[in-house]
């Protein structure tokens, strides 16, 4: 069984934010007004986080890190869900069931990476955006938690296509939206246990690290950085 994972090369990443925009459109993630955004109600499945090291110029460095859900192998969020609305699915994806979620937000409080977002209001869609809603991804109602799914709908489609053509699923069949959008090809995606894939090789490179490995969550998103 595959184990899906992502590798993001921070040495290639320019911080342009194309992945963030692509993710929003692909997954019908709600766009909020500037006022709500200033109230910290923005919704991102893929977010560009800014890490500032050091206090004052020139002794400081700013890093941009694209952050999807890390789809931990030992997720703290699924453990606390009272109704199994979030769970570790087969193939290592941490899934959300929007129709079952009671909106207690315990998973959000338990996630050490703060990747989960909540629908504080009913998502608003402008007329333009209504035209280009992705039909493959369900719209979420207000009051439920959501997050990056590693574009699971794309896996379903790819798998159906492969079955129709009577062939095994290839690495190129299942690509995620942020990966497709990245102009610097910094994002790789694939089966972490298949030796032929790029992510297998990259995730075992000496440049690879994961965020907060010390708390034992075993995230499946790797970052590559020279480390200096």
């Amino acid at each position: 069984m595959p184990k899906w994972g992502m590798v993001i090369d921070l040495d290639k990443c320019t911080g342009c934010g194309a992945c963030v925009a692509a993710c929003k459109t692909e997954n019908n993630v709600g766009v909020v007004s500037p006022r709500l955004s200033s109230e910290n109600r923005s919704m991102f499945w893929m977010e560009m986080i800014k890490m500032v090291e050091g206090e004052e110029y020139p002794d400081m460095r700013v890093r941009y890190i694209p952050r999807p859900c890390f789809h931990c192998d030992r997720p703290p969020c699924t453990r606390v869900c009272p109704v199994r609305a979030t769970y570790l699915a087969e193939e290592g994806l941490v899934a959300q069931i929007y129709n079952r979620c009671i909106g207690c937000r315990y998973c959000m409080a338990a996630c050490p990476y703060t990747v989960k977002v909540f629908n504080w209001y009913e998502p608003q869609w402008s007329d333009e955006r209504k035209q280009c809603v992705n039909p493959d991804v369900s719209l979420r109602p207000k009051g439920v938690v959501e997050k990056c799914t590693f574009c699971y709908h794309r896996l379903q489609i790819a798998r159906e296509d492969a079955r129709a053509e009577n062939r095994p699923l290839k690495e190129a069949d299942y690509r995620v939206a942020c990966q497709d959008a990245c102009p610097a090809a910094a994002i790789s995606f694939g089966d972490l246990e298949d030796k032929s894939t790029k992510v297998y090789e990259l995730s075992r490179s000496t440049r690879a690290m994961r965020i907060m490995e010390d708390i034992g969550t075993e995230p499946k998103v790797f970052y590559l950085s020279e480390g200096e």
């Binding site: 709500l36 109230e39 910290n40 109600r41 923005s42 909106g103 937000r105 959000m108 409080a109 703060t114 977002v117 909540f118 629908n119 504080w120 209001y121 009913e122 207000k142 009051g143």
Partner: peptide, 13 residues
Amino acid sequence: LGLGVTGMNHPVT
């Protein structure tokens, strides 16, 4: 209207 009417937000959920 939704829980948006409260002061809760991300990450203070």
